[in-house]
């Protein structure tokens, strides 16, 4: 019996589950980031960020997160390449059927997110963890990386902010289709609940990227 990943629908299931996991992760991520602008000091951010870097449960989640990203990206690439091969000769008149606009650009928005992801991980994850890019602080008697200071320092650079904002717009467009699409892929399509899921998806796509975008904008304004 061939395994589930050898089927197109099986690969899509993994993609959608990992996508939903990433969607949930981003809410936590945003919550932590917002302490940077809503708290007077960066202490809360540092405590949360270091907790995320050390706690064992979070460690397991971190592996799931990296694994999730990996599978989502790999299968996304495989399926997209197969889709391009499936129509070797294109139409003269491009298709103008009534469809969801952003679903046509999932691959393009994914490339934007992908490029950002590399920069982002290098900037805040690899630098702090392996390259001693962050200073040390002592909060409540515990020594930890001063990630808050690192973030605030980076966000005072205009081009970093612009790259960050472009990436989040890419993410918003990716999720505008992706959020509700994941439910359909899992097989959940219901006359009552699907419109609710679409509404929630829209709210998420606007609020979460907006929340992330506010942070560099406010830090930039405060420090200039």
């Amino acid at each position: 019996m061939s395994n589930i990943f050898s089927f197109s629908v099986g690969k899509k299931l993994i993609m959608s589950l990992m996508g939903l996991f990433l969607i949930a992760f981003l809410v936590v991520h945003l919550g932590i980031n917002l302490t940077l602008i809503f708290c007077d000091t960066t202490d809360n951010f540092n405590i949360a960020a270091n907790f995320m870097g050390t706690n064992i449960v979070v460690k397991v989640m971190e592996i799931t997160l990296f694994g999730g990203f990996f599978l989502h990206i790999i299968y996304g690439l495989i399926l997209s390449i197969q889709n391009m091969i499936a129509r070797p000769v294109n139409y003269k008149v491009a298709n103008n059927s009534q469809t969801s606009f952003f679903s046509k650009y999932m691959f393009h928005t994914a490339v934007i997110i992908g490029i950002f992801l590399v920069l982002h991980l290098f900037d805040f994850y690899i630098k702090a963890k392996f390259l001693h890019g962050a200073e040390s602080v002592i909060i409540n008697g515990e020594e930890m990386h001063d990630l808050g200071a690192l973030v605030i320092e980076r966000f005072q650079i205009l081009w970093v902010d612009i790259v960050y904002i472009v990436a989040l717009l890419g993410l918003a467009f990716h999720l505008h289709h992706g959020f509700q699409s994941a439910f359909q892929t899992i097989g959940l399509n219901h006359p009552v609940y699907t419109p609710i899921v679409k509404g929630l998806g829209l709210a998420y796509t606007i609020l979460v990227p907006l929340g992330f975008i506010l942070i560099p904008v406010i830090i930039y304004i405060q420090h200039s």
Binding site: S2, L79, A86, S97, Q98, S103
Partner: peptide, 22 residues
């Protein structure tokens, strides 16, 4: 049926919805 569909070289669904519209 899904295995055959994959094998024949059809693309993969991205829930775009053009099919339903047409």
């Amino acid at each position: 049926m899904i295995a055959k569909m994959d094998e024949l070289g059809f693309g993969n669904c991205t829930n775009t919805g053009a099919c339903e519209a047409e």
